[in-house]
Amino acid sequence: MNPTHRLRAMIGYHLAYENDLVGMVMTQGRQREVINIGLAVKQICTVPADMSVAAYAESQHHKLTPLEVSFIGPDQPDDVILRRLCIMLALKQAYIKAIGQPMGFDLSRLEFNFPEATARGDGFPLQGWEFRVWQAHIGVKRGDQLIEERYQCASAFFRGTEESKFIWQKDSKQLDSWVQFLTVDQLITVLPKLSD
């Protein structure tokens, strides 16, 4: 690619995967506009599978702030605790990937306040970020059985605005406008186009 054209248009992307789901987030823009983008995929389940939700949530408390721990209190039903925990962990992972931090980053330095739709890092507001949150439900064949797996997905993209913005994608029509789900066969078909 011509170096002067590269300053005008580039594609920034990030890959994420967990268990049976692989994701790719991408954007196009000028060189400096496409570097801060991150994606996280977190399966909505306990690890190991036979662990109780309460025990699993407690094992993740070191990654959360006291405010975040209050969102997953024992007074909540198990499905709510697990969903909220996975949302917080996915948001944190997407953000640290977008800023280029290693996997050992102390996630408790970040705080996501759902009711107020705010994000903080080291006690300071994270300004200029767009966070998108959605779920993916996929069918996975295990022997003769088709099993549904649910994943919490989150992307973080630096937009440079004054405030951070949260977009909660619950409506499938809205999600279809910017998210595409491909099978392995479909991906293999489009692979040659990605290398052009």
Rank of each mutant, 00 (worst) to 15 (best):
P48N: 10
A49D: 11
A49P: 03
D50R: 09
D50F: 10
M51D: 13
M51W: 12
V53I: 07
A55L: 07
A55Q: 14
Y56I: 02
E58I: 04
Q60K: 15
H61G: 01
H62P: 00
K63C: 08
T65W: 03
P66I: 04
L67A: 13
L67P: 00
L67W: 02
L67T: 08
L67K: 09
E68V: 01
E68S: 05
V69T: 13
V69W: 00
V69S: 08
S70C: 04
S70Q: 14
S70G: 14
G73A: 14
G73K: 09
Q76L: 13
Q76P: 06
Q76Y: 06
P77N: 06
P77S: 05
D79Y: 06
I81L: 06
I81K: 14
R83V: 05
R83C: 11
C86N: 15
I87N: 12
M88Y: 10
M88I: 11
M88Q: 13
L91S: 08
K92M: 03
K92P: 11
Q93I: 00
A94S: 15
Y95V: 03
Y95C: 03
I96T: 13
I96E: 00
K97I: 06
A98F: 01
G100A: 07
Q101K: 13
Q101N: 07
P102L: 04
M103Q: 14
M103N: 11
M103I: 11
M103A: 15
M103G: 05
G104Q: 12
F105S: 05
L107T: 03
L107D: 02
L107Q: 11
L107K: 02
S108I: 00
L110T: 03
L110W: 01
F112P: 00
N113P: 01
N113K: 12
F114M: 06
P115Q: 10
A117T: 11
T118I: 05
A119S: 14
A119T: 08
G121E: 15
D122N: 14
D122A: 07
F124A: 15
L126A: 05
G128L: 09
W129P: 08
W129K: 08
W129Q: 08
W129A: 08
E130M: 14
F131I: 02
R132W: 05
V133K: 03
W134Y: 13
W134C: 10
Q135F: 09
Q135H: 13
A136H: 12
H137V: 02
I138V: 13
I138S: 11
I138E: 07
I138G: 09
G139Y: 04
G139I: 01
K141S: 12
R142V: 07
R142Y: 10
D144A: 14
D144P: 02
Q145R: 10
L146M: 11
I147R: 13
R150Y: 06
Y151K: 11
C153E: 05
C153P: 02
A154G: 05
A154H: 05
S155R: 07
S155E: 09
S155I: 10
A156M: 07
A156H: 12
A156N: 10
F157H: 11
F157K: 02
